[in-house]
Simulated scan of single mutants.
Amino acid sequence: MKLSGDLKEFETRIGYHFAAPDLLNRSVTHASMSSANRDDNQRLEFLGDRVLGLVMAEALLALDPSATEGQLAPRFNALVRKETCADVAREIDLGKVLKLGRSEMISGGRRKQALLGDAIEAVIAAVYLDGGFDAAKSLVLRLWGKRVTRVKEDARDAKTALQEWAQARGYPPPKYVQINRSGPDHAPVFTIAAQLENGAEAQATAPSKRAAEQAAATKLLARMEQPE
């Protein structure tokens, strides 16, 4: 199977050329485009998620031999979560080469966080099957780049960190209130306020409720931890 011009350019962007091009084609084929003669990327996504996890676990252990499991876990989660995967996918313009059904194309599938995150995992699996673990590891570390070396133990889930801060001071858990929702159905934008019982509040806007809540929690925690 030959690759299209767009996929050949994509190979150059990721720095890997496939011996079996059909693997790359399958990795960028969404379920909305699958048929009896065309496999989608769901099984590859399942495998790629595990390969990504192993690469990151190895990398974090090597970077900090003295780190405890409690320190490593939040760093690991920050590197493999769907938001991070989608960010990496955007950087290599993965959305441009995705093969989507009409309904997904109309609904803005090339920009959807979940779809992009799943697709980059499928690409990782395709490289793993094509060139082995070392090739997949090299790809992941190259694409994630400085994210791996910069991740810190305080990269833990911002909502969890804010809740821990509140509980340590005798406050109930923070509340998250949707202030606004704008944009079309295929590309919504949410504004969420994180609120503490003492009246402190911070707002953030993002393409998903989860991302907006995390951003608002990050802002509020940073504000509360500032020295008076």
Results as ranks from 00 to 15, higher is better:
5 G>M: 10
14 I>E: 09
214 Q>L: 14
186 H>S: 08
125 A>H: 06
25 N>F: 00
101 G>P: 05
124 I>P: 03
225 E>Y: 04
39 D>P: 15
19 A>R: 07
61 L>W: 08
8 K>H: 10
180 N>F: 00
16 Y>Q: 00
196 L>A: 07
220 L>T: 12
216 A>D: 01
75 R>W: 03
56 M>W: 13
111 R>Q: 09
10 F>K: 02
75 R>K: 09
155 A>H: 12
69 E>A: 14
192 I>V: 15
74 P>N: 01
178 Q>M: 15
227 P>T: 10
131 G>A: 02
65 P>T: 00
127 V>P: 04
62 A>G: 08
71 Q>F: 01
77 N>K: 13
93 D>T: 03
106 I>P: 15
119 A>C: 06
71 Q>H: 01
137 K>H: 08
115 L>G: 11
61 L>Y: 11
32 S>P: 12
114 A>H: 12
5 G>Q: 10
196 L>F: 09
26 R>Y: 00
17 H>G: 01
13 R>H: 09
36 A>Q: 11
184 P>V: 00
61 L>E: 15
35 S>Q: 02
167 Q>L: 14
78 A>Y: 06
6 D>C: 07
21 P>H: 07
15 G>V: 00
120 I>L: 07
159 K>A: 08
66 S>H: 09
199 G>W: 10
112 K>W: 06
152 K>T: 11
120 I>A: 00
45 E>R: 14
30 H>L: 10
135 A>R: 05
148 V>A: 06
186 H>F: 03
72 L>M: 13
219 K>S: 08
148 V>M: 08
194 A>C: 09
173 P>E: 04
82 K>N: 13
33 M>P: 01
211 A>Y: 03
145 G>F: 05
112 K>F: 04
5 G>D: 12
35 S>E: 01
133 F>R: 09
54 L>R: 15
93 D>N: 14
181 R>H: 04
227 P>Q: 12
19 A>M: 06
226 Q>D: 07
133 F>E: 05
144 W>N: 00
28 V>F: 03
69 E>H: 08
106 I>T: 14
199 G>R: 04
189 V>F: 07
201 E>S: 12
196 L>S: 05
147 R>A: 04
181 R>D: 07
72 L>D: 05
180 N>R: 11
183 G>C: 02
89 A>P: 08
133 F>M: 07
2 K>L: 13
158 A>V: 09
